[in-house]
Design a protein around this nucleic acid. Structure first.
Lengths: 349, 349
DNA sequence: GTCATTCAAGAAAACGTTTTCTCGGATTTT
DNA sequence: AAAATCCGAGAAAACGTTTTCTTGAATGAC
């Protein structure tokens, strides 16, 4: 079951077996065939541990996500795995469930397994937790929040683009009182989304009522709570933009409870555009941030860093566009709430 | 950065360092302290590859799921990971996306990484694909479909219990024409669920119209298609039970399109009870099959097999109960459709 | 025909651990 | 007090590979 057994049966040295497996050209076709025959016959699979021990390359990438049970992440994991297998990489996934201890532990596990790089898709958790990886000079890729350091790449998300589309879409439907349910504001990415919202509003001269900026937590429960709050305002917003789709789903859920009809009484826009969004009732308009694209960029960032001979001095920047995916959760603002008549034509569905 | 460096600085042999790390009791407290100090100071983490190479134990379990983007599976993965970290095991997850080639590849990858066991949570894909694992005597645990072989455990799901509850619940609400949307019938588990449905119906004297057994595919799209079909029947069913929640969500989606109100016009019950079920509109009644419990059982099955000195002769059987989780997607059958008056009291929510 | 060159393939070293073997000093036994 | 036992810790072997070094045969040059 080891290379020695193969060597013995093929009557060659273990070096020749190794060379055969790795396709080193100096081995005679005749011997190569003999070796391969034995390998097949024995069903021999090389021991990766031994391989990477001597070669110094584990062919493993780590992938840290914040919550695998949040439907946003499985798509990323799937995408990452797809590219990984194509490139003969293994992937070690850990879900932090927002627990610093868990993060620290998973960082440690990854170092012990000698991963060649780690993709950190947590949208801005405590950065210090990854110091161990940095000092060990392991290539990293962050979403949004990575510091400009050697070997550290970043996927910058262009939140502004998609959120501006969302705001302008609502404005075109005569909405003026638009609320924004953010994620936890300790997260840099949540902050960035909120800022993009505010800027987009101001850009077209719409006032942002500070009361209409509600801090959620990127969960359905958070969306439920936020909507309850919103419905208590004397002058209700006529539209809500959420910092992620799970929040929006919570909002839908609670709207149903409270008899608020979407989109008649309230227009709703999510963020992320998870697959589920299109199966909501009604199908949820959402700002698309392609999970597959994130996975692809993250993997390529790591791979190219690993293949470099000298590390990139200040990391590499990747940029991901976001854009609005129009569905059925938005409609004209209720007549009573309209003032302006700056109606643009709603783009065809 | 290796054990040698630690040994050098602590002025002991590498054997002592190894013993210290592994808590072997023969090492003097004084030396132990000295070694630990150096370890901390250096930030030394042992190399798992080298460790498992010599010890012959990789401390890795494989986990094969059929589709990580199906919300049913992330919960299992999370549960599995939770227990794994507690037990110092690493977990290699692969999502087969129903592709035999992918399965074969992931089996191979797992063997190369020398996993100590594999949990196969695919609900009955081509069993032959796992032969490689069997011949290598790697402990396996299946859901439902495992053959009785040494080192192969099984988690048998008691579909009957939960599905009978579902059927009787509907019967109590005076439903008689109950449809069942199954999964792909090549899957043994899908078959088993359908059989449980038929038996539960017959048990209480309700006829199963063969037309009302519709083969779905365990996806939302499948649910959508299935409902379209159902609505065309001259004598519409008044209730539908689905073989999984994703199908039920598809049904809800299409009901909305077609103006069929749930539960007024149609009662709906799902299966799996994924977390999302309670956030549906209306909250979906579903047969609960605890994902966490599956994960726990699967992990324990592998762990106990690994710790055994002689392999279990015919594997071990675990049994998981299912039971109905009552929510709001079921109601009394429309008056026109009632005949019997065998109304039991609907248990409080 | 001899000598230098090339090249295929074997021998051996190396990777970073755990574990067995060995040794020398301390403790116990008689 | 000598012999036997115990025990802590170092030396060395082993795990299964890749890779460097070495060797010997074949090829080519003159």
């Amino acid at each position: 079951m080891s290379i020695h057994e193969v060597a013995r049966r093929a009557k060659v040295s273990i070096a020749t077996v190794s060379r055969t497996i790795n396709g080193v050209s100096t081995v005679t076709p005749q011997l190569s065939r003999r070796v391969w025959r034995v390998i097949e016959e024995l069903g021999y699979y090389p021991n990766t541990q031994a391989r990477s021990l001597v070669s110094g390359r584990s062919r493993i990438f780590g992938l840290i996500v914040s919550e695998i049970t949040n439907p946003f992440f499985p798509e990323i994991i799937q995408g990452f795995e797809d590219i990984a297998v194509q490139n003969n990489y293994e992937i070690l996934t850990t879900s932090t469930v927002h627990d610093p201890k868990r993060i620290a532990l998973s960082v440690r596990r990854m170092i012990e397994r000698r991963v060649e790089g780690v993709a950190i898709v947590t949208f801005g958790m405590e950065e210090a937790l990854f110091d161990d990886l940095k000092t060990r000079k392991i290539p990293l890729v962050f979403i949004d929040v990575g510091p400009p350091l050697p070997r550290i790449s970043n996927i910058r998300i262009d939140y502004q683009h998609g959120i501006r589309e969302a705001v302008q879409h609502l404005a075109a439907l005569c909405h003026e009182r638009i609320a924004f349910i953010s994620g936890p504001l300790i997260l840099k990415s949540a902050m960035a989304r909120q800022r993009a919202f505010i800027e987009s509003m101001e850009e077209i001269g719409l006032a942002v009522d500070p009361n209409h900026l509600i801090e959620g937590d990127h969960t359905m429960e958070g969306g439920i709570k936020a909507l309850k709050k919103i419905l208590q305002f004397p002058k209700r917003p006529t539209a809500v933009i959420c910092s992620n789709d799970m929040t929006a789903i919570g909002v839908m859920r609670q709207s149903y409870e409270e008899g608020v009809h979407i989109p008649r009484d309230l227009s709703l826009i999510g963020f992320d555009d998870i697959r589920l969004a299109q199966f909501m009732i009604p199908p949820l308009t959402s700002v698309k941030m392609s999970q597959t694209e994130i996975a692809r960029m993250a993997f390529n960032a790591l791979l190219s860093e690993v293949q470099r001979d000298i590390p990139s001095p200040d990391g590499t920047e990747y940029v991901l566009r976001t854009s609005l995916a129009l569905r059925d959760s938005t409609a004209m603002a209720p007549a009573g709430a309209r003032k302006k008549v700056a109606i643009l034509k709603k783009s065809a569905d």
